[in-house]
Design a protein around this nucleic acid. Structure first.
Lengths: 244, 244
DNA sequence: TACGCTAATAAATATCATTCATCATTATCG
DNA sequence: CGATAATGATGAATGATATTTATTAGCGTA
């Protein structure tokens, strides 16, 4: 067997954290540009300024690299969200907040949303993932809102909280696929309002909401403006009447 | 260069239609058992009693084979559905019929549903597919139901038909993923009823439906019993009251 | 029966993800 | 401070598969 190599090698000696973030940044770009299957490890290595083998020192395989990239994005996305959400009062406003921020996030980062939806969620091992837990906690907020609404006498006691969750997030996802397919844009604020109204009418008890709307308008406005300054403001409103 | 082969070859001389259906049947089995990526062309060829190369005489590539398999399934599934649907009267019953048959189909064939959802719909060329058109027509029925309901004065005129479509099919899909992940079974009839009620309340105009319920009970019962004899009957009902 | 034509065959190729024998660099020790 | 061991980066080799293609079997035709 001839010796493996005779060439002089250049060795990259950046600290590990730096190399990891370089690899993840490069991977994010390449995955977003080409999708998971057409993204080559070679491309990613080249763009990160490392060599193929080095990627495998930090990531078990191509899929783990993808998962880490998407997790990183999702965690970043969630960071401020929880804090802002805590300031919103009243079932209708809370539902609208959740719907809106989710729609807006997808609208802002379609390619990463696609990776999450298309490549990660369907995987057989998704349930064990950190991303699965993050997402569960994220959607659970809506379940809690509905439960609290029922307890507070705002919502019908025969409402199934998990059904509301599936209805809302499923609907958002369907819109997302249409959007990702390039069949039409949507306005996050408008769409959020429409979804919230329809669902709210389906679950509300009385004909008018009972939450103290006025007191939180300013806070919600601040929160959402900060969140989505570039993509348009979504002003808080009082819940619309249930009957025409 | 030495001659390519010295072995005696067996030549399969079945008529082309037969070979095609053999390949599709084998492909369906292998895709269902192993999923798209882990299904090897070699496996499929072996099970179909042909050789790898022969598959490429009838299908451009592995993906086209998958698409053809799923299209075939979907077309078969749709065949009776349209006819039965035509017999259902009243917005509430129509919505419930659509929700129920869809839930039941998924429940009956989880693996094929997964292939459609996971492998085909996200593909960049999905829009050009025959399956895309089939699916569009399939979901469009719900849009038409809502439009008709509005025109008939049963549903609120400010309802967005396409939003209802996304809400309903999105919700079903979310339930489906939970189911496919093995996190919990669902009862198609029960779930259909819950979804229908919630959505109906969100879009209904008055407090009671106006369609002539009684007259179609028998017909719907016949249709659905025929459709889903093995998976439990879904009896037609009059739309529930809108307020508690 | 001999000759082509078509379609089936299976070996060869191409494309990547992943592994691993080497070697550059840094840290340790006498 | 020089020798030597430890670390970890390198990129060529490997392995797994989809796809291509040179070759041939079997059929129809003269």
């Amino acid at each position: 067997m001839p010796p493996r190599t005779a060439l002089k090698r250049q060795v990259n000696r950046l600290p590990p954290e730096r190399r990891i973030s370089d690899i993840m940044a490069a991977a994010k770009e390449v995955f977003v540009e080409k999708g998971y299957n057409d993204a080559l490890i070679t491309d990613i290595a080249l763009r990160a300024g490392v060599v193929e083998g080095s990627i495998y020192r930090f990531f078990a395989n191509k899929r783990e690299l993808l998962v880490k990239v998407v997790e990183h994005w999702f965690e970043e996305m969630l960071r401020d969200d929880a804090e802002q959400f805590a300031a919103v009062r009243g079932s209708w406003n809370q539902i609208r907040f959740i719907v809106y921020t989710h729609l807006a996030s997808i609208h802002r980062d379609p390619a990463l949303s696609r990776l999450a939806l298309q490549e990660i969620r369907p995987a057989p091992d998704y349930r064990g993932t950190h991303l699965f837990e993050l997402n569960r906690a994220y959607t659970q907020r809506l379940v809690d809102v509905v439960k609290a609404g029922i307890a507070a006498g705002e919502l019908r006691p025969d409402t199934s909280p998990s059904l509301v969750r599936d209805l809302v997030f499923g609907c958002i996802e369907h819109r997302t696929w249409t959007f990702l397919r390039g069949e039409g844009d949507y306005d996050p604020a408008e769409t959020a309002e429409a979804i919230t109204n329809l669902v709210y009418r389906g679950v509300a008890l009385g004909s008018e909401p009972t939450s103290p709307m006025e007191s939180v308008v300013a806070r919600l406005e601040t929160a959402t403006a900060r969140l989505e300054a570039a993509a348009g403001i979504i002003p808080a409103k009082s819940s619309p009447a249930l009957s025409r």
